[in-house]
Write a protein that binds this DNA or RNA. Structure first.
Lengths: 231, 231
DNA sequence: TCCGCAAAAATAATCGATATTTTTACAGGG
DNA sequence: CCCTGTAAAAATATCGATTATTTTTGCGGA
């Protein structure tokens, strides 16, 4: 009815299916390359075929789903190359976005960043953490007057986080002092030092990326299971 | 069933609808911000509601269509800000892509670029020119080992060309020696001089962008008609 | 004249059923 | 034993109709 019900619930059946399917794919509940049969999903999400089909169409352009003409849908494959590409693009685009964002800094933006950081820190360990972590990273760059760029960043974030889930959700945050890195980025951003903030952000990605790449690399058992085995 | 398909059309009804609608939007046949009623399009393209709806979903992620939950679809609005953003992102991403492409140069790639250029030149003035022009620009960067980046570039190209059509199709090619610019980019690319090729490509965009911006700028009658008038 | 409300019309979203295509299984021939 | 053509089964894509939602219209009252 009203557009005001924010509490995760409503929207059209299509929107719901979109969100739920997206989550299933990003978290790895639906494995890479898995065939997505309309009938199966229809039962699993307890909705009609049309919303499923439309949601899958939307996910196609997010690069989370591949559409094979006349042969239905399947989740996007993963590969070491794809992972590296995502890392590279993320570094490039978020660097750009962060600089633009800081360049247009306002008090409101600054406060939103602080708030997003606070919420993320507070949710450490909870189920909401991943979402709030994205919230913090998006808040940093949100002030860039460039909606398309922001959408690219958001999309790449989701593609990236999918690999993190595939590597084993959550565990990769404990081994480094990520908190301190986040804190450093926050400080630099609030101080409106674009160079410093950007440098710290890139370092943050570099470290996270290297860590994940290690887990997922060709040599590792996990990498072999993900990239080698085509069942 | 439908034997009356024109011009070697293949694929599902959805794919066809997607391509046709895309063309209608990019060329400005469907005006910016125009409401896209399923029933109207259904009759216009002589197909069912489902393919239309799915095609519109696909176009949504190309940023050519906006979806208003429960309120249907409409073509994306245009604005001076949006246009400038597209120009900026295109310069940034194609620069990156071109350098990557040249860095991985192969004979096959080189030949494809030459071929694409030849076809474009040959088609000057014909209806196919726009498509082949895109073909040339995409061929230049096609060797970048970065499918996501290439997809971003392709998407931005289409968003950009839409403004060119809105400004009055074709006319903007006559006033500058675009041929020579293309030729220069081609030479530098074939010589595998990434710096030079990139510089020429950016100049090319700079000039084209400035020209179009002039046509579409706030002060101009065309700009006012496009950006000011919300009918 | 200007709201506000309710009924009516228009439109979007969804469902159930049908047609089309792909996949699978299998028989016959090389 | 493997290849190939074909028929049955499964799955996808599409259609036509129904349902839900939004927008418009019309009317009365302030």
């Amino acid at each position: 009815m009203n557009a005001l019900d924010i509490s995760g619930s409503d929207g059209s059946a299509t929107q719901q299916a979109y969100r739920r399917l997206r989550r299933l794919i990003v978290t790895g509940d639906l494995r890479p390359g898995e065939k997505l049969k309309i009938e199966v999903l229809r039962k699993r999400l307890d909705t009609g075929a049309s919303p499923i089909r439309e949601a899958l169409s939307l996910l196609t352009s997010d690069k989370l789903v591949d559409r094979l003409d006349q042969r239905g849908f399947r989740t996007a494959e993963v590969s070491a190359e794809n992972f590296q590409e995502i890392l590279l693009l993320r570094r490039t685009l978020e660097d750009l976005a962060l600089r633009e964002s800081v360049a247009h800094a306002t008090q409101e933006w600054e406060e939103n960043v602080v708030l997003a950081h606070h919420r993320m820190v507070k949710a450490k360990g909870s189920d909401d953490f991943e979402e709030l972590h994205k919230g913090f990273h998006m808040a940093l760059i949100a002030n860039a007057p460039s909606p398309i760029l922001l959408q690219f960043c958001s999309q790449l974030y989701d593609l990236n986080i999918r690999y993190r889930y595939l590597a084993g959700s959550g565990l990769n945050y404990q081994l480094r002092d990520v908190d301190e890195e986040h804190e450093g980025i926050l400080q630099a951003a609030v101080a409106r030092d674009a160079d410093l903030a950007s440098e710290r952000l890139l370092t943050h990605y570099q470290l996270t990326g290297a860590y994940l790449a290690g887990l997922l690399g060709e040599g590792s058992p996990l990498g072999a299971a993900l990239f080698g085995d085509k069942n």
